[in-house]
Design a protein around this nucleic acid. Structure first.
Length: 479
RNA sequence: GGGGUCGUAGUCUAGUUUGGUCUAGGAUACCAGCCUUGGGAGCUGGUGGUCGUGGGUUCAAAUCCCACCGACCCCA
């Protein structure tokens, strides 16, 4: 009857509307009362926690340690690296008062923590033996988004992790930057089931103050690219103004090499966009707070027995390390519950009714393709695990197929404009000249998402100036 | 950055054009009871509203005017 409870907008017809609706109705998040701020609800936070715990374990294995640094940064510190400050200045929130008294120095609410962290690092780093210094922080940062905001994708405050490392040499920093981007790729592809490509940002698009930025990009179903994580080699650009110096193996004083890297709750936005459908969310099993929902189908006579069976199954699955819940709520019909849990993206559903009880079986239904199967009870745990694995793989496969279908290589600007209009990731020859990059942006709205790390010198000419191209770059309109 | 749409109960919405019938109507959700349960069931009763906020016009404002806050969409 009341179809309004579910998602009204269609993903294919009205993507933006669909996206907001899914986030609110699936109870991932809610709007805060200040523009651009968002409430991450328990269901959304649980996904974030799984992502966090997974990545946290990995970086700790590589000897990184977590720490915490202040959220307020004195203006003078933030201004020490001039390029960096210029880059962030328009989006910094400033604290100017303590109670009624004006502060003698304005304090910035961190838009990122390089500066406040380096202030400490300068005190801590003395010798090459102190290096590498590998610290990660889980926190939130604030960047004023005045105009367009979008849950998870563009918010004035967001949760993220920021890694800040100090190294003896450029080469060591290079290695750190690369091993982290690979971890990001593993996290996003193996856990979030979102295919990505790795590459270097152009000079124009790199992190302000960085030597270079390595990025991980993906393409959303509306044809716009989304940056999923970045890893920066900051060279000595920060160590010099912040005086992060160490006595080297050679007995001489050196400026250190620093790197920083981060991903944010944006990943949750990508997860919604890439996998969701007209019924709501689809959460890949590896990051799903609830992997399996058991729904009983009551009939008066067998009610008690069914409840008992549902509880038994939950225990069994729990023992097998499956994140499982049951829905024993009365007054909701099974059909109602199916819709609700589909909206919430639970990857697998188990139905238990009188028929199943009699046949010692259960019905399992996949969220991603609605495939329904009857499974003998003694095989249930194994079947559930197989189904979860299969959903995880299929979600990635589907997303990868879509990405490949929407990635094109073009040679001329005419071809480029035609493809970009439809929303695509486009590989095109470029001369490395920033004027051409800007011209492309102005004419098409697309910018350079990345330049592949393994470079092959093109035979073609730059699509804009028609001088010989130096690299292939990937372009797209982006979030 | 430019343009547009909008704000009435948890949600969706009628009423706004043309001020008075509005003590704001409905659906859904929620609560209680009954009845049901294999794809969003039904019946009965009930709770819930600073009409986004502030100011103004008026005998009278959800309705007109101004400012602000917030949300959404399109374009760059």
């Amino acid at each position: 009857m009341s179809k309004e409870i579910g998602i009204k907008a269609k993903k294919k017809e009205d993507f933006s509307e669909w996206y907001s609706e899914v986030i609110i109705k699936s109870e991932l998040a809610d709007y805060g009362s200040v523009k651009g701020f968002m409430v991450l609800r328990p269901y959304g936070f649980q996904i974030w926690e799984i992502i966090k715990e997974t990545f946290d374990k990995w970086i700790k294995r590589l000897n990184h340690k977590n720490a915490y640094f202040p959220s307020l940064i004195p203006q003078s510190l933030l201004m020490k690296e001039r390029e960096h400050f210029k880059g962030f200045n328009p989006e910094v929130f400033w604290v100017t008062h303590a109670g009624n008294d004006e502060l003698s120095e304005k304090l910035a609410i961190r838009p990122t923590s390089e500066t406040i962290i380096y202030d400490s690092y300068a005190k801590w780093v003395r010798s090459w033996r102190d290096l590498p210094l590998l610290i990660n922080v889980w926190n939130s940062v604030l960047r004023a988004e005045i105009k367009s905001t979008k849950p998870f994708i563009r918010t004035s405050e967001f949760l993220w992790q920021e890694g800040h490392t100090v190294h003896e040499s450029k080469k060591d920093a290079d290695k750190e930057v690369r091993r982290i981007i690979k971890l990001y790729k593993r996290l996003i592809e193996d856990y979030l089931a979102i295919p990505t490509i790795i590459g270097k940002k152009s000079e124009k698009e790199k992190f302000v103050g960085a030597l270079y930025t390595i990025t991980l990009e993906s393409l959303m179903p509306d044809g716009r690219a989304l940056q999923m994580g970045t890893s920066h080699n900051l060279g000595q650009n920060f160590s010099k103004p912040f005086e992060i110096k160490f006595l080297g193996r050679d007995g001489k004083e050196h400026y250190a090499w620093t790197a920083s890297w981060g991903f944010s709750w944006r990943l949750l936005g990508a997860l919604v966009m890439v996998h969701g459908d007209d019924k709501g969310l689809i959460i890949p099993p590896k990051v799903a707070p609830i992997q399996v929902i058991i729904i009983p189908i009551f009939y008066k006579k067998e009610k008690e027995k069914i409840i008992q069976k549902v509880k038994d199954l939950k225990k069994k699955l729990k023992r097998a390390k499956v994140r499982v819940e049951f829905d024993l709520r009365e007054g909701y019909t099974p059909g109602w519950k199916y819709n609700e849990w589909e909206l919430k993206g639970v990857p697998l559903r188990i139905e238990i009714g009188p028929r199943d009880l009699a046949n010692e079986q259960a019905v399992i239904v996949r969220r991603d393709n609605s495939e329904k199967r009857m499974v003998k009870e003694e095989l249930l745990v194994r079947s559930v695990k197989e189904a979860l694995d299969s959903i995880q793989k299929d979600l990635f496969k589907r997303a990868k197929g879509w990405l490949d279908e929407n990635t094109f290589e073009v040679k001329s600007f005419g071809e480029f404009e035609e493809k970009i209009e439809k929303g695509a990731l486009i590989k095109a020859p470029w001369c490395l000249n920033q004027e051409c990059e800007i011209a492309i942006k102005e004419k098409s709205g697309a910018d350079i998402r990345l330049i592949p790390l393994v470079r092959k010198r093109p035979n073609e000419n730059c699509m804009v100036c028609e001088k010989p191209a130096k690299v292939f770059a990937y372009f797209a309109r982006a979030y």
